[in-house]
């Protein structure tokens, strides 16, 4: 884990200054090292994103610790969702979108042309802002991923995967009697847990969550947050959230984005109690954003 304040600073000091792709004013991310966190397997280095001519993200570098929750906070339009969608290459679907820089998982570049996007998305699952179960049965929703990736050899195999995924998502007891009724008939919170079960079913290493609770009521939110805390045991989780309280509650590491730049990253506790950057301080005290 880097102990220097800035990854960019380190490269500059070594004398091989990388050609900057942007004319944006230079900024330095304030980095506070993580204490006793797992080593990162997912790393981003100098990631810039353009939508057409418009730059949405400026040289973001961050390490995501293994089996921990990392949260991205920041005001609307700050690029945190854009960055999240770079991690499983969901931005590929947007035609005008260009991504520069490196994102690596186990030292394998996710933007390498030899990498299979379909396999990548099985390794890095995603949960979206609005619960979006398929208009199929609960069982079919969870079974879909294992089916298309050929993970189940038999029907009983598949049933086991579905059951264990629903259990991990804390939904099994609520739906075990109606596995074949439509997933869209569940409540919002249950739908979101169904989506989490669906993501888990293909056995991902990383789960990306894009504001997973923003469409839910406080009780459903609390259940999901509890679930995220449990899932941390087995999965690396990256969550984008608008709620600073949520970031403080569920995450171990927090990164603050502002206007497309990563302003500050570090242990969650430190960011909220002792922000080093003035912008971070302004944001968490409610002065900007």
């Amino acid at each position: 884990m880097s102990t220097t304040l800035s990854a960019r600073g380190a490269t500059d000091m070594s004398g091989t200054s990388a050609p900057s792709t942007t004319q944006a004013p230079a900024h330095q991310t304030v980095r506070v090292p993580m204490v006793d966190a797992n080593l990162p397997r997912l790393k981003a280095k100098d990631v810039s994103v353009f939508y057409g001519d418009k730059q949405a993200l400026y040289d973001v570098s961050i390490d995501v610790p293994e089996k921990a929750v990392t949260s991205f906070i920041g005001p609307s339009g700050c690029g945190k969702s854009t960055f999240l969608r770079c991690i499983n290459r969901m931005n590929d679907t947007i035609e005008s979108c260009r991504v520069l820089g490196d994102i690596t998982l186990d030292d394998q570049n996710l933007y390498d042309s030899s990498l299979d996007v379909v396999e990548l998305r099985a390794r890095i699952g995603m949960v979206f802002q609005k619960p979006n179960p398929f208009p199929k049965s609960i069982f079919e929703n969870v079974a879909y991923g294992p089916k298309i990736h050929g993970l189940a050899r038999s029907k009983t195999d598949l049933e086991e995967i579905v059951e264990s995924s629903l259990k991990k998502a804390g939904l099994f007891n609520e739906v075990k009697d109606r596995l074949h009724s439509p997933g869209t008939g569940l409540s919002g919170g249950q739908q979101q847990r169904l989506c989490i079960a669906r993501a888990i079913a293909v056995g991902p290493e990383v789960i990306l969550m894009d504001e997973p609770c923003s469409a839910l009521d406080p009780i459903a939110t609390a259940i999901i947050e509890e679930l995220i805390d449990e899932l941390r045991e087995n999965y690396t989780i990256v969550i984008v959230t608008h709620s600073m309280q949520q970031a403080a509650r569920v995450s171990q590491k927090t990164a603050f984005f502002h206007l497309g730049k990563l302003i500050e990253e570090g242990p969650t506790e430190g960011i909220f109690t002792n922000p080093r950057d003035k912008k971070t301080q302004d944001y968490i005290t409610g002065r900007i954003g």
């Binding site: 969901m90 998305r121 699952g125 979206f128 879909y144």
Partner: peptide
């Protein structure tokens, strides 16, 4: 959202 869900599943 349906397309995204399916794409996100791989």
């Amino acid at each position: 959202s349906i397309r995204e869900a399916a794409l996100g599943m791989g």
